[in-house]
Design a protein around this nucleic acid. Structure first.
Lengths: 251, 251
DNA sequence: ACATATAAATATCAAGTGATAGAAAATTAT
DNA sequence: ATAATTTTCTATCACTTGATATTTATATGT
C-alpha cells in the first residue's frame, strides 16, 4: 500500500490480484511453464509469511526463495497482498479437504440421538486430535505457521480462514459439547468452552516456545508428543465432566 | 538495524539505548522537563506497539503520538529497539508489583500442609482471575495489548517478560495444580495443565475477535464478562477434578 | 518460418524506514 | 550575566520496501 495513489495503474498486465488470478494459461491455451513458478511462489510465500509474518517477509525474499525474479510475484498475484490471499486460500482449501472426511463422519454420528457420554467424547477427540497433531509437529509444509501468523496479525485473511476452517471446526465442537453438557450448541456456556478447547489446541503452536521452556523440553517429539496429547486430552475430558463443582445443571 | 555499518556512531550523545537509559538527569542535577517527554514516548510506544506490533509501529508515528519530534526517541532510548525494551520493562515492572501482594499471599497459604481441594482451587482462582480480568477488559493503559503482541513476535523482549511475569505466574499455578493433583510441580502432567490454564486466560486477549465472533458478542462488558469468567472457571475447576477417569464423583 | 501470445528479467521509481548531524532553544550553574 | 549543559528541532542520509515500465527470452498456433 505504498505508492497506490501515484501509480495510475494504467495497464495491470495479466493478474487481477485477487484469489483466482492466473486463469489465462487455461483459457489462452497451454503455457504450462508458468504454473510451476506460480506454485513455487505460493510455497515460498507460505514459508516466509509463516516464518516472518506478513510485514517482515519481503517480496524480494519470497521471490528469491522461489527462485524467480521479483516482478513474477506481481505478474502472477498482482502484488504482495494478492499472494498472501492466495496463500491463505491455498492452505484453507488444503486443510478443509483434509479435514472433510472426519468432519463428515462425526456429523453423521451426531445424527444418532442416543450417544453415550464416552461416545461423544470419543467423537470430540477424533475431531480435535488430528488438529493438535498438525499444529504440534513441525510440518515441512509449514502451513501451520502461516495459519498461526494470520491470527496474530488481524489481517483480512483472518475472516476467510476462520470461516473456512476455524468456523467449521468450532461449529462441530460446539455441537458435540452441547450434547455432552445437555445444552443448546449456541448457548454461551457451550460456545465459551468450545472456543477454549480449540484455543488450547492452537496454543501448542502459538505459545510453543513458552510451553517448551516451561516443560524443559527441546521439542514435541515422539514420546513427548504422546504425553502432551494424553495430558491435554485428560484435561479436556475432565473439564466436560457431568457434575461440575457447585451443583449447577443436571440433564 | 539499517545503516548500522555506514554510520560511524561517533558521539552517541546521551542515552545508551539499553533499558536503564536516562540517568543523566539524576546525576547531572535537574532538567526535569525531559522526564515528561520520556514518559510520553514510553506511553505512546506501549500504545502503538500494542496496536500495530513492533514492525508496523513506526518511530515517526510514535513520536507524533507522543507529541515530540522524532530525534527525541533516539535521544532518550537510543533507537526503536531501545524504546521497545524500555516499554517491556516498564510494563513488566508495573504488572509485577501489582501482582506481588496476591502472589505473596498465595505462597504463604501454600506453605500450610493441610489444604482441602476447594481451598486450593480458591487459591488458583485468586491468582488467575485478576489476570483474566486485566486481559479481557480494554485497559486504558493498553499494556495488555503490548503484552499480547510480543508473544506473537518472538522478539528478544519475550525472554525478559516471560521470566518476570509469565514465569512467576506459571510457577505459582504449577505449585497449586501439583498440590491438587497430588503430583510434583515439575512433572509434565502438572506443567502442561498449568500452561494450558494460563494460556486459556491469555487467549481471551489473543483470540479476542474470534471468541467474540463465535459468541456473537460485541464486547466483554459487564454481564458478559461475568459469564465468561464463570464459565471459564467452571471448566478449569472441572478439569482438575480428582478422578480423571470415566467415572467420578463430586467433592 | 513467421507472427503472436506468454513468461521472465533488468533497471528503476516513489514512498517510507530508522537513524544522524548540526544548529537552535531552554535550563542550570557559576 | 555568562558559560556550560541539557533538551529539542530542521534537514537530511542511507537503505529497504512494494511496484512498474520496458525489454528480452520462450513457447504456441498458423
Amino acid at each position: 500500500m505504498r505508492n497506490r495513489n501515484t501509480a495510475p495503474r494504467k495497464s495491470r498486465p495479466p493478474a487481477s490480484g485477487a484469489g483466482k488470478a492466473r486463469r489465462r494459461c487455461l483459457i489462452g491455451g497451454g503455457y504450462a511453464r508458468g504454473e510451476h513458478t506460480r506454485r513455487r511462489l505460493l510455497e515460498a510465500g507460505i514459508e516466509l509469511f509463516g516464518e516472518l509474518g506478513y510485514e517482515r517477509a519481503s517480496t524480494r525474499a519470497i521471490a528469491h526463495r522461489a527462485g524467480v525474479s521479483l516482478p513474477a510475484l506481481q505478474y502472477y498475484f498482482g502484488g504482495k497482498e494478492g499472494l498472501h490471499r492466495a496463500c491463505a486460500q491455498y492452505i484453507t482449501e488444503d486443510v478443509r479437504t483434509r479435514l472433510a472426511p472426519a468432519t463428515q463422519r462425526v456429523r453423521e454420528a451426531l445424527d444418532r440421538r442416543d450417544l453415550a457420554r464416552s461416545e461423544l467424547l470419543e467423537l470430540l477427540r477424533a475431531v480435535v486430535e488430528p488438529f493438535l497433531e498438525g499444529l504440534a509437529t513441525e510440518r515441512p509444509e509449514s502451513w501451520a505457521l502461516f495459519f498461526a501468523r494470520i491470527q496474530g496479525e488481524q489481517g483480512v485473511a483472518l475472516d476467510a480462514i476462520f470461516q473456512q476452517i476455524g468456523g467449521r471446526l468450532l461449529t462441530l465442537v460446539m455441537e458435540i459439547i452441547g450434547r455432552v453438557l445437555g445444552r443448546p450448541a449456541e448457548s454461551p456456556e457451550v460456545a465459551i468452552r468450545a472456543v477454549m478447547i480449540v484455543g488450547q489446541i492452537t496454543l501448542v503452536r502459538r505459545a510453543r516456545p513458552i510451553i517448551l521452556r516451561a516443560l524443559g523440553w527441546p521439542d514435541f517429539d515422539g514420546e513427548r508428543l504422546t504425553t502432551l496429547k494424553e495430558v491435554m486430552w485428560q484435561a479436556i475430558a475432565c473439564s466436560l465432566s457431568p457434575a461440575p463443582g457447585p451443583a449447577r445443571e443436571s440433564v
